[in-house]
Amino acid sequence: MMRQLHALQHALPLLFSITSTVLGKEDKYYNAGLNYRPENITGLDYYYYPWKGSYYNGTVAFTISSISFREDYNYDDEKLCSRLSNDYTYTFSYPGLLGITPTEGGDERPQNTNPLNVILSTSYSNFTKYFSDYNENGSMQIRDEFWIFESIDFSGVGGSPFRVLGTSDFGETNLLGFRMNMSSCTNSVSWWDAQWASEDWDDDEIDVENATLTLTFDSHSANFMLQGYIYAQVLNKDEEEETLPIDAKIKVEFLGNHDDARSDILNEGVPVSWTSTVGFGNNSANIDYETGGAGPVYGMLPGGLVWGLVGFVVGVGFL
């Protein structure tokens, strides 16, 4: 039924200028007890914006530094290359989208006891390549993502702007790895496979520390910084003997602007909370306001009459 409504929405914009609030508020899949938004919001990419909360657009910058070779892999005591050393720094970046939303036990996101969920996504195409109806092609959009961060354990949330501190426990939280195109001992450009390291992995005793998160946000901007260590090795089998695996420091930074069109209203005070607006036509800054802001119309037209109009137009369409 909902897919039929999506098709009707695109084919009959005049009808939906009258009934869009009905369909947004009365979406049969919408459950006010959970944090998910209605799924029939015009123009909303539901894959990236399914939850009530705040969203920010910006750039995610990765900085790799303080590189050291894993000596335990140097079985022949060969001289290490000079291309990679402690003064070598590699940086790269991708478009980023940060979502900060409530946490709830009934959610499908990773289990945690945090008061907030923080999800930072990166995209090859600036989140446009697989923009589509989530229910039709949502599984394709993950192919456009370079790296995703999901919540680690928070040690505190407070202040205004809101401030979040967190620390990863590798035994409980597995930060996703990534592949990067960095120099090697053999080539100026090589593909590497990088995984986040933890204190438990510090075989070389180089003072590896678990990843730490610092995040500040308000209704205007967000500043995200994740710092830790990675373990990385080249993917080309021909290079493995000449380029040993490495340990290195990593810093992931995101500075983003608040996405008024796709964010709910962030309330003041602790605990952090939001007033639902996206999908309800009650915030002129939201993406659905012009098509979904027909609240007074719904008040004037009985629900049965509205759905009768929908049935009438659909019936005419099949004549």
Rank of each mutant, 00 (worst) to 15 (best):
V157W: 12
P95E: 02
R109A: 02
G177E: 06
T186Y: 11
Y94M: 03
E199Y: 01
S93A: 05
P161Y: 06
S190Q: 10
T173N: 14
W201Y: 09
M182S: 11
S160N: 11
F178P: 02
Y124P: 09
N114R: 02
P95C: 01
W196D: 03
E104I: 02
I119G: 03
S188A: 13
E145R: 15
A197L: 00
N126M: 04
S125Q: 15
S93N: 08
S183I: 12
V189W: 13
M182V: 10
L175Y: 14
E108Q: 04
V118F: 08
T89I: 04
L120Q: 06
A194C: 15
E145D: 14
S151R: 05
S121C: 08
W192P: 04
A197V: 00
G99V: 00
V189R: 13
S85P: 02
G177A: 04
F92D: 04
S85A: 06
D203C: 02
S188H: 12
Q141N: 11
D107Q: 02
G177W: 06
F127M: 07
Y124H: 14
S151F: 05
W196S: 06
G99Y: 02
E172W: 15
E108L: 03
I142L: 12
T91Y: 03
D193V: 04
L176H: 14
S198D: 02
G177H: 05
S184H: 05
Q111W: 07
L120R: 05
L116I: 05
D133Q: 13
D204V: 03
I119T: 15
S188W: 12
I119R: 11
Y134S: 09
D144Q: 14
L98K: 01
D169A: 11
S151C: 03
V157D: 10
G166T: 04
T128C: 13
Q111C: 01
M180N: 09
A194W: 06
T91L: 00
F146N: 10
N126Y: 09
L84S: 04
E108R: 03
S190L: 08
S190A: 15
T122H: 10
V157C: 08
M140E: 12
T167P: 02
S198E: 00
T103D: 05
N187Q: 10
D203S: 07
N174K: 15
S121T: 10
Y130V: 07
T103A: 02
E145Y: 14
T89S: 05
S168P: 10
V118C: 05
G105Q: 13
F154G: 03
T103F: 01
W191T: 13
A197W: 00
G138C: 08
W147Q: 09
N86S: 11
Y88C: 06
G166W: 02
E199G: 00
E172I: 14
